[in-house]
């Protein structure tokens, strides 16, 4: 039988992969994809808990809102990348470095 922990471990692995992508990728679009992995891992958690722990649809409703938010964020992020691309003609985090951290 597939238990709650199985789902949670897969979600943890997905979260770590997303984190890995965020830390190592330079291309802004690629970082964005890694962020989507993080959102998905949280959603798997929410839905798994919704079924196994709370026994109602609270977690599913939360996950639904997360999907809406992820869509908004992706749209705005891509708009910013487009806008910057027009100025730079090459979207790479290394390029975006007139500002020094």
């Amino acid at each position: 039988m597939i238990s709650l922990e199985h789902y949670l471990i897969v979600a943890a692995a997905l979260f770590s992969l997303g984190l890995y992508g965020v830390l190592t990728r330079k291309n802004a679009i690629n970082v964005l994809m890694s962020i989507e992995l993080i959102f998905n891992s949280a959603n798997i958690n929410l839905i798994a808990f919704s079924r196994f722990v709370s026994g109602d649809t609270e977690g599913q409703v939360f996950a639904l809102f997360v999907i809406v938010i992820a869509a908004c964020e992706a749209a705005v992020a891509l708009a910013i990348i487009m806008s910057l691309y027009r100025i730079l003609k090459d979207v790479s985090l290394d390029e975006a470095s007139v500002l020094k951290g």
């Binding site: 964005l32 962020i35 910013i80 806008s83 910057l84 975006a96 500002l99």
Partner: peptide, 13 residues
Amino acid sequence: NEASLKYILFGAV
């Protein structure tokens, strides 16, 4: 633009 991109990537993470 660069500030905005940094902000959204850092913020989303």
